[in-house]
């Protein structure tokens, strides 16, 4: 097999800008997805069945339909309504965040529910409100436990961001597709971006591991 490194070099500037956009999309997705996921997790755990129903439906929808379709819906349906025109990057951030939030919500929920009931009771018996008990007692303990599964979600999100190439958001996979199309090559572009994704995911899990260690010593 003749592997053409020179062709990769031709595309290096595009892979670089694509990598930056991939990082940006993932970072925004992680940030918004985590915040939204927390809200949805708390919403789903509400005791009133009718109040929690929308959150249950949200999780069901975003976990139960293909992310690719969600991206198309957001890109061609939602973003034009807001911005007046379609925008691949904005749609990518929104779709990735909404999708990740559904998964992260379930991670949060399982983490929160794994905390001993006595912790909430002790906090409430001291006069704390439900929100205070969540904030000072339950969430700090839950967060420590959900860091590993949360790290998994972050890595999945980073790789899922490749689907945004379908709406021509010029991230890493988009440029690999363009390179493949231009030179009729498969391995040069796709192995290259796989290596870049690997470096990104390894770095991300290193960050999560560090956070885990730091929380463990607290």
């Amino acid at each position: 097999m003749d592997f053409r490194f020179d062709l990769i070099w031709n595309y290096a500037p595009f892979f670089l800008s694509g990598t930056l956009l991939t990082i940006g999309l993932s970072f925004a997705g992680i940030l918004i997805g985590t915040l939204l996921g927390l809200v949805i997790a708390l919403g789903k755990m509400m005791r009133n069945k009718w109040l929690s129903l929308p959150f249950v439906c949200y999780i069901g929808f975003f976990r139960g339909t293909p992310l690719f379709v969600q991206i198309l819906i957001v890109h061609f349906g939602v973003v034009p309504l807001i911005l007046g025109q379609s925008n691949g990057i904005v749609a990518g951030i929104i779709a990735l965040s909404l999708n990740a939030a559904a998964y992260i919500a379930e991670v949060f929920r399982s983490g929160i529910q794994s905390i001993d009931k006595g912790q909430m009771e002790a906090a409430r018996s001291l006069g704390m409100s439900h929100a205070q008990a969540m904030r000072y007692i339950i969430l700090p303990q839950a967060f420590k436990r959900i860091l590993p599964p949360l790290g998994n979600e972050f890595i999945a999100l980073l790789k899922d961001s490749s689907l945004v190439s379908a709406i021509a958001a010029p991230e890493l996979t988009y440029w690999a597709q363009q390179m493949g199309a231009e030179y009729f090559k498969v391995w040069e572009p796709y192995l290259t971006i796989s290596l870049i994704y690997l470096i990104l995911t390894l770095s991300l899990s290193a960050v999560v591991n560090r956070l885990e260690r730091r929380m463990a010593t607290e």
């Binding site: 001993d116 006595g118 912790q119 009771e121 002790a122 906090a123 409430r124 018996s125 001291l126 006069g127 704390m128 409100s129 007692i137 700090p140 303990q141 420590k144 607290e218």
Partner: peptide
């Protein structure tokens, strides 16, 4: 009820200290 609970201390069988 939060105000009432603030005035009624409770001690549990399982202690329920905050481990973090």
């Amino acid at each position: 009820i939060n105000k009432i609970r603030a005035e009624v201390g409770m001690v549990f069988q399982q202690f329920n200290l905050f481990p973090h």
